[in-house]
């Protein structure tokens, strides 16, 4: 996996911040208001292959550029293939996706997303920028909202709501004093939030 020395330790070592992230996300999605209850209530996970295809499209990366464990093993096709909903019939006898997500599935998704978002940020910083250009040029609230809107549009295929943009932007206040590079930490963090959201992983 490509190293991401600045973001990963902070995320791994700061469960309170992760909890806050989740809270923000939930708040944006579940703000008090109209009730909705699906009669069908059928939610399916996207296979790792499909999720990675969307991730690659959103971030302008080829599938093999998203994530490689130890720098050699493709995370989605090889290292976490079964964990992310794939099959391995000929060598492991796993004919169908696991009926329940494995306990390591969230970690695998996180690792892919952190790697891919970090790669996109590095490329944008080297230029020309595809996604994070606005905050790389000048970092402020409006520029972050602009990036947040682009993230949601590219990954989820729809415009972001105001609540979602506020929640993503609020991430900056949470992390700005705990990082040497708040622009990068926010950009990659917001990217991970969107690309590992419930809407991105399930349908």
């Amino acid at each position: 996996m490509r190293p991401d020395p600045q973001l990963l330790p902070r995320l791994m070592g700061a469960p309170r911040r992760l909890a806050l992230l989740l809270t923000l996300e939930l708040l944006s999605a579940c703000a008090a208001g109209p009730r909705t209850t699906s009669r069908i209530n059928r939610v399916q996970p996207r296979s790792g292959e499909v999720w990675a295809r969307d991730l690659g499209h959103a971030l302008g990366l080829q599938p093999w550029e998203l994530c490689a464990e130890l720098g050699t093993r493709d995370c989605v096709e090889e290292a976490h293939r079964v964990t992310l909903g794939g099959v391995e019939p000929a060598s492991l006898g796993i004919d169908a996706p696991l009926p329940e997500p494995s306990v390591s599935a969230p970690m695998a998704a996180d690792r892919v997303a952190i790697s891919a978002c970090g790669e996109r940020y590095a490329r944008d910083k080297a230029g020309p920028a595809l996604l994070f250009g606005p905050v790389l040029e000048r970092d402020n609230r409006w520029r972050r909202q602009e990036v947040g809107a682009a993230l949601v549009l590219r990954m989820l295929g729809r415009p972001a709501t105001d609540d979602e943009l506020d929640a993503l932007e609020a991430l900056y206040d949470t992390i700005k004093d705990q990082t040497d590079d708040p622009v990068r930490s926010w950009a990659v963090g917001a990217c991970v939030v969107v690309t590992t959201s419930t809407e991105a992983l399930f349908y």
């Binding site: 208001g33 109209p34 009730r35 909705t36 209850t37 699906s38 009669r39 209530n41 295929g157 349908y203």
Partner: peptide
């Protein structure tokens, strides 16, 4: 389960939704 769809998020929660089916 009774279906409830009080918001205006664009999804037709209580019946066939062509936009949803297209995405699927």
């Amino acid at each position: 389960i009774d279906c409830v769809d009080e918001d205006e998020d664009g999804w037709q929660l209580c019946g066939y939704d062509l936009d949803y089916a297209y995405k699927k």
